[in-house]
Structures are given as C-alpha cells and as structure tokens.
Amino acid sequence: MKGDANTTYDDAAPAPITVDLQLSVNDQLYPVTVDTRETLLDTLRGRLDLTGAKKGCDHGQCGACTVLVDGRRVVSCLTLTVSVDDRTITTVEGLGSGGALHPLQKAFIDHDALQCGFCTPGQLCSAAGVLAEAAAGWPSLVTPRSPPGAGPEAAGCSHDPAAPPHDPAARALPDGPPEPVRLGEEEIRERMSGNLCRCGAYPGIVAAIAEVAR
C-alpha cells in the first residue's frame, strides 16, 4: 500500500509488520502472531495471559518486568518478542515446579519481603538470576578483586571505595571455573539494584535471598 498513488490512505499510519513465531515459555510452546514492535512483556501479558511480569516504568529502570531468558535475567520491557523466538523463557509463573513454590517464593513469604506485591514477580526472577550468576562465580562491583575463597578476609571483605586495590599477587585468578561468590547483604543489595520496591520492602527481600543463598 505504501507508495501507491491511488490509495486514499497516504496520511494514515503505516501498516504494522507482523511475524508468526513460536515462543517457549515455562516449558510450553505458544504459537503467536506478533507485531515486530511488540515487547516480550506485552506478549506475555496481552497474548499469553501470563500477567506475573509487571509493567512498571516500561523503560528498563524498575525491574518489575524481569524474566529469565535462557536462564538469564533480563527486562522484558526492552526485549522484542521477535528476538527471542529461539530462546527459552521463564516467568514467575514457571519458577516453581509441580505446584510447589520455588525456595525464593517460600523465603519471600517467610520474611515478609513484600507489601503491595507489584514488584515481587520481578524481584523473584531477578533473585533467581542472581543465585545463578553468583554460583557461576560472576563478580559484582562489590566483589573483592582477589578470588573468592582466598581467605576469610577476602570472602567477607566489605567494599570500601576508598580502599586501595588489592595486592597484584592476590589479584591473579586461578585457572579453571571461578569459585561461587558468597552472597552477603552487600552483594545482594548491589546485585539487586535493578529492582525497585516503592513499598521499601528491601530488608525482607535481602533477608529472603540471603536465606536461600546460604
């Protein structure tokens, strides 16, 4: 239609471009037809009736829409649905298994890690990602440069931005897979900084994640 001189729709909005694809969400395949502009968040909520992931800011700044793509936490509000048709998606609805709560969900309840609950699905998916990242030895900004497990000082070292860098000898990492990072309160707070909670339930959230990480 575009460029057709006979059309009466010259000033109309250009036609959407749609794509047929299959999405793998929570171990289920969903055939969908989506507009290329559609985000994963809108597809999950609007087409698949998976309304756990929430639209908070829709700009990647609040984390309420966090889901796992191939096991990694991402913000679904900045993920195009067409870009993840070959990926495996897990939402908060798929975190637990066989009707049982995920340990994080149980811990969030036990620690009163929420008030209104709007941010909770994103907090849970993000926390699941944090556990996996720490288990794989991924550092955060507050992780000491020296390898985790090098000693009680290194493992429990709090990050002082004014402190000088560690000795170069201690900085060398061993060959082989990195050791898991122990998730204390400081690590959890830094790693969870992409998830906001307007109710301020942070102390409970941190305690819940710390319990599962132990």
Binding site: L141, R145, L173, G194
Partner: peptide, 22 residues
Amino acid sequence: RRGYPMLAEAVLAGASGQLRNM
C-alpha cells in the same frame, strides 16, 4: 578479570544486572 580488572570494574559499575545480561 585477570588482565584487565579495571575494565571489569567499569562494566560492573554500569547499569543493572538485567541490563548487563542484555
């Protein structure tokens, strides 16, 4: 991390865990 710890620090100082994964 071994050869360019400053680069790792700079990357980790940016954005959030979710955005760094993307």
